[in-house]
Computed example of a mutant assay.
Amino acid sequence: MERVHSRVVVHGVVQGVFFRDTCRRTALGHDVAGWVRNLPNGTVEAAFEGAADAVAAMVDWAHHGPDGASVTRVELRQERPEGLEGFEIRA
């Protein structure tokens, strides 16, 4: 399996709505490694790494997030895989 790595920055009402925890649980369900964190400007940043279709599913998920989120824009960057394992919520 070829691994891919995508990084997203999600804009909108995305903090205080369980975005990070739901992202972690959803990623683990798709067997996607990576991390998610809140940024000081009110956005959420996440890195997804794994099989291309699973990472694409997480990028799609980021466009709406959990119930209570209101996503207005998603910035996407493709990056070189880092060999990430597990999925963590970063401070």
Rank of each mutant, 00 (worst) to 15 (best):
P66V: 04
L39Y: 07
V14A: 11
A27L: 05
G83W: 08
V17C: 07
L39A: 14
H5W: 01
W61C: 06
H64I: 12
E79D: 15
A57S: 09
A52L: 10
D67R: 13
G16H: 11
R90T: 11
S6P: 00
W61N: 09
V10W: 04
Q15G: 04
R24T: 04
N38Q: 12
V8C: 04
V55F: 00
E85F: 06
N41F: 04
H30F: 13
A51V: 05
Q78E: 15
R3K: 13
E2S: 12
T72S: 15
P66F: 01
F48R: 03
V55E: 01
V17M: 09
V74K: 07
W35L: 07
S6V: 14
R73V: 05
R37F: 02
L39E: 15
V17S: 09
V13F: 03
G34F: 10
D53C: 00
V71T: 11
E82G: 03
R80P: 01
G86L: 09
F18E: 13
R24Q: 14
T72C: 04
L28R: 15
L28Y: 04
D21C: 01
R37K: 15
V13T: 15
A27T: 10
V36W: 05
E2R: 14
V9C: 09
D31K: 05
N38M: 09
G68I: 09
S70G: 07
R7H: 07
R7F: 01
E79P: 00
E82R: 15
H30Y: 13
H5C: 05
R20P: 02
A27W: 06
V4A: 06
T43Y: 03
Q15C: 08
A91T: 13
F19E: 08
A27C: 09
D53S: 11
F48H: 02
H30A: 03
M58A: 06
V17Q: 10
H63R: 15
H30K: 13
W35N: 11
R3F: 00
F19V: 07
L28N: 07
V9H: 06
E85H: 13
T22A: 11
L76M: 03
S70Q: 14
A33V: 09
V71M: 08
H30S: 00
R3C: 00
R37Y: 06
A47D: 14
R25N: 08
R80H: 13
L84I: 06
V32Y: 07
V14M: 10
P81H: 10
N38L: 07
S6W: 01
F48L: 03
A33S: 15
A62N: 02
R77G: 02
A57R: 09
E82A: 14
V59A: 03
M1E: 08
V71S: 10
F87A: 02
D60Y: 05
G83P: 02
C23W: 00
G42M: 10
E88S: 14
Q78V: 11
G29N: 10
A46S: 12
H63P: 00
A57Q: 06
T22P: 00
A56P: 00
W61Y: 13
V13G: 01
D21A: 13
F87R: 01
G34C: 12
